[in-house]
Design a protein around this nucleic acid. Sequence first.
DNA 1: TATTGCACTTGCAATATGCAAGTAGATCAT
DNA 2: ATGATCTACTTGCATATTGCAAGTGCAATA
Lengths: 149, 149
Amino acid sequence: MTGTRKITWDGCPTRYAAGIFGDRWCFLILRDALLHAKRTYSEFLASPEGISTNILADRLSRLEAVGMLERIIDPRKASRVCYFPTRMARDLLPALIAMMVWSTKYDKHTEAPTSFAKAYQSDPLGTIAWYEAEIDRVDAAIRGGDINT
Amino acid sequence: MTGTRKITWDGCPTRYAAGIFGDRWCFLILRDALLHAKRTYSEFLASPEGISTNILADRLSRLEAVGMLERIIDPRKASRVCYFPTRMARDLLPALIAMMVWSTKYDKHTEAPTSFAKAYQSDPLGTIAWYEAEIDRVDAAIRGGDINT
DNA sequence: TATTGCACTTGCAATATGCAAGTAGATCAT
DNA sequence: ATGATCTACTTGCATATTGCAAGTGCAATA
């Protein structure tokens, strides 16, 4: 990991967060898992940022190791592997959304509609609940065996 | 920057955020500026994480370039340079604090008191306002010429 | 049984980092 | 006035990480 050295990344809350997703690729994988319903290796690989396959493998195993993703081999199709965001990852939603609100304010080329920030400001808990429900829906569909989801 | 390649980091809100502080060191510098009242090169350098001096120089200029820090040579002591967090950086406080709340929940060795998360949950705006007031205080003291602050 | 799909691994050149040492201008002490 | 010190960096180089392309192995499909 870039700049890991011998730092103990726990202790300080900011440092702990930086240690886990203070990395562009982890960040984007979490976005894909939490916001874009991506679950498989090839889905993550297909993101427009173009992550390298070896880096993706590394980050997925790292995120699994810290407990952010749960790696599960699909029992009905053993060649398919799914990475589900855990509660730990889901609990990052408020921070992630707060960052997105910040980005929409400062990124001159933002693709996010202004309605996004407004919706969050007026009903933060509801917005988070909406994303959680989406995650539940996707996961239930896959775990329930509906492979086409 | 690690993994920069030719990616356009703007557009997507998550990617934009990742592009700017999806880097451990930028993250920690922002923490120091926003939460720990650090303003000078040597103060940032002295943080317990032990950032290398060349990396610090690189990240400070990068954060200045994107508009997160304002570099100012102290008019009363030209050998002193201060980096002030801009409004853009201050606006990151909600996201930063949300991340800290997350960290205190999942880091088994967290040094943050449980009261922190509780205070934020019960009064998020007040908590943010408190940090902003601290920043104002420090900056006013330095800009006002009180070099001992 | 061959081909394809999916999840990775491997090898290597390019890039970024960590560390130690050095530089340059401002300030301080005598 | 001048040498020591302070502060903010820069430089050089060994090491670590990344990006890219190609390859591997198992499962499912034709």
